[in-house]
Computed example of a mutant assay.
Amino acid sequence: MAEATTRMGQDSRRSEAYQHSEGTVARSIEKQTAKLPSDVFLWAAFASIGSSLLLRSVDRRDESLFVGQWAPTFLCLGIYNKIVKIAGSDRTRG
């Protein structure tokens, strides 16, 4: 009885995984970005902050704000990259 219940639970999880599997575009992008070291995104965020400070110091306020807003995006991309590396991008493929 317990074995049948366990098997049913595994089948329903597998079926859910197939219903929510990644498309070919997402899979190919993740395959390429997973090759990047995670610190690339951290350094890009620091470069964005530094460039923003530099632009602000030469009185280019609009450009400074624009470039400074890239930092959170780089950090979010870094988090996504780390998750893909650790957890994998798709539960239906090996």
Rank of each mutant, 00 (worst) to 15 (best):
S15E: 15
E63S: 10
A34Q: 08
R91S: 07
D11Q: 13
L75S: 07
E30C: 07
K82E: 07
Y18S: 04
R13G: 03
S38V: 00
V25Y: 15
V84W: 04
A71I: 01
G94K: 11
P72H: 04
S52E: 02
T24Y: 04
A34G: 09
G23K: 02
A44W: 09
A47S: 12
E30I: 01
G23P: 04
S28G: 02
Q10M: 02
I49M: 08
F46K: 08
F66P: 01
P72M: 04
R7S: 08
S12N: 04
E30F: 07
L77R: 00
T24F: 08
A17Y: 05
T92V: 04
P72V: 02
K35V: 03
S48F: 03
Y80L: 15
A44V: 00
Q69S: 13
A87N: 09
S38T: 01
G94T: 08
S48M: 03
F66E: 08
T33D: 04
K31M: 04
I49S: 06
I83Y: 07
W70K: 09
L75C: 11
N81P: 01
G94P: 09
R93P: 04
G23A: 02
G94S: 12
G50K: 03
R7P: 00
S21D: 03
Q19F: 06
L55Y: 15
T73F: 13
E22G: 09
L54H: 03
T33V: 11
T5W: 06
L36F: 10
Y80T: 10
Q32H: 04
A47L: 14
I49A: 12
T5C: 06
G9M: 14
E16F: 13
R27V: 06
V67D: 02
R93Y: 13
E63I: 00
D62V: 05
W70G: 13
R56V: 02
C76K: 07
A2F: 02
T24H: 08
G88Y: 13
F66Q: 12
F41Y: 12
G68A: 11
